[in-house]
Design a protein around this nucleic acid. Structure first.
Lengths: 329, 329
DNA sequence: CTGTTAGCGCTTTCAT
DNA sequence: ATGAAAGCGCTAACAG
């Protein structure tokens, strides 16, 4: 029992395949109402649905919008982005599909586009190599959008700013009178760069106010964090800690409390990600929150914009973020 | 500058398109070594890559394995599953793509399969309606695999068991002498069913040992949890709490501590999910951990099995899980 | 061992 | 307003 094709519908309705095609998706009034009626009815009777792959072959692009996910641990922010982006893309009428951009994988994003010829591609700017944009456009992809820290040449990029996260956290601490801040940042391929950027942002904000800022790198692991803090605090105790993420922050707090220091009185601690659990800890955790919904909405806007081919590529957008004040800082 | 087609390569090498096709992916020795050489070289010179969409149209299925994600909040276990499954599927040589199965969306999983004609489909059993399997097989999908609580007729299903999670948690508590256990379960469309199952498992385990088990439903929200506990504990204080997830558990702990009860001495608390933060809380949180890696590996095994068409569909697999003992219970 | 040829199912000029 | 026909790029059955 094979699926019916447009030829079957044509035969059933006593018209040609062209008429079927026009009726089903041609610009409205090419077909006489009476004919259309017959075609529609025949299609319904047969349970006809056009074959999207054939259409893709003909048109050069499919109905899919491919969303590349950077190869970082899928924490709360990324999970939320997947969730929200999926919804907003679906609302544009396209089919959102996700791909985990594997680090050094052969399945690079251009390959994937070649494979499914998506209508749109939204991918982390790190996943773009110099020829990537040109390549995927050549493969038929109409809307190419990057997101991430650095703009991609010739591609509309929705910028994020890890530095802003850092400066945001630092400014919060500065406003509360902290004058000696320590960054606690990760090592390890996938996270180290992000850590460096957050730290740089914090450092810049501190420099503006002539406040001391240092940072220390460590594995994210209870023992390692404790050791790192022991080393760094031994010489001089900072009044506040800016932790790479909430997990890290919590490890730090745990260490501080164990050494008899009070949080936030002796040392304040601020984290990142605003994990679901952050508000439930004691002390509850002050954390930087990212506006993922807004970010995803921007992505969808840019997509919509590229659908109607008007505006030229332009760097745009910026994720908003803010500190959620709680007890720890 | 269009991409070269097999016709271009054929011309360049002075052979027919068929020869090109056979050389590039035909069963080995149909082509004379010397001819193959010429073809390969021509292909390389032109930078030829065969068009997967055309191939899909011809063959009826693509190179993609579609992984459906159930419409639940993307917490740690789901995130890990996405991550791991992506890797293991990629290792089978297929292209893993994800789709968030929207609740009542028109983009149901059969539609998506129709759209991209994936080689394989791995989807939550809730996403299967009665005709789904037949439908997607009709669309060309060769390997259909379900995962979840309930088996799907005619489809190899990798079973998970929320009930086992519940009984696992309960048994842990029973072993430690608890004789009055309270389940704390969520309301709300996406989670309520899972909660019921976990609770049922716990109840069954308790009944075996003639131990009292009750459960209470609540929004997962600090106030609501507190209110629910106040009501339930008011009448009779359980010796242990089985919380739906770690977030819930933490809210409960917070409430208990605020009312002057000690954890675990007065009331023990066990959570689910083994969140990254669970080990860092104080008291650190005892939690049920799921073996996602093993689960994903099973998925990949079943996929591999279906690739070589031998075994008949068989219900199989079961996720292993265990309690990670920490301070709270 | 290699080439010819007939589609896969659809869209879209170009005639009618 | 409708139909005929030419592909999109590929594979595989069938001749040679």
């Amino acid at each position: 029992m094979k699926a019916p094709t447009s030829a079957d519908v044509a035969r059933e309705a006593g018209v040609s395949r062209a008429t079927v095609s026009y009726t089903l998706n041609g610009t409205s009034s090419r077909i006489r109402a009476e004919t259309r009626e017959r075609v529609l009815e025949a299609a319904a009777r047969l349970g006809y649905a056009s074959n999207p792959v054939a259409k893709t072959l003909k048109l050069g692009y499919s109905h899919v919008v491919l969303l590349g996910i950077p190869p970082v641990p899928l924490g709360p922010p990324v999970a939320e982005m997947i969730s929200v982006a999926s919804r907003v893309i679906a609302e544009t009428g396209y089919l959102p599909l996700f791909h985990l951009d594997q680090p050094g994988s052969q399945a690079d994003i251009a390959q994937v586009c070649h494979e499914i010829q998506p209508f749109g591609l939204i991918a982390p700017s790190e996943s773009f190599r110099s020829e990537t944009a040109e390549l995927v456009r050549g493969h038929g992809t109409r809307a190419v959008i990057a997101y991430g820290e650095r703009p991609v040449a010739g591609v509309t990029t929705v910028l994020t700013s890890q530095e802003t996260i850092g400066s945001c956290a630092a400014r919060y601490l500065l406003e509360r009178g902290h004058r000696d801040i320590l960054g606690l940042m990760p090592v390890g391929d996938d996270l180290v760069d992000i850590g460096r950027l957050r730290s740089a942002g914090a450092r810049a904000a501190c420099r503006e106010q002539r406040v001391r800022y240092r940072s220390v790198q460590t594995e994210i692991d209870t023992e390692a964090v404790a050791a790192a803090l022991r080393r760094s605090i031994g010489s001089r105790r900072p009044s506040a800690l800016f932790a790479f993420n909430d997990e890290c922050a919590l490890m730090a707090i745990r260490y501080l409390l164990e050494t008899g220091l009070r949080v936030p009185d002796d040392v304040a601690v601020i984290g990142c990600d605003d994990s679901p659990l952050a508000g439930l800890l004691r002390p509850s955790l002050t954390s930087v929150h990212f506006d993922i919904s807004g970010f995803s909405a921007t992505l969808a806007d840019v997509l919509r914009q590229q659908v109607s081919p008007e505006q030229p590529p332009a760097q745009t957008g910026e994720t908003s973020m803010r500190v959620i004040p709680r007890e720890s800082a």
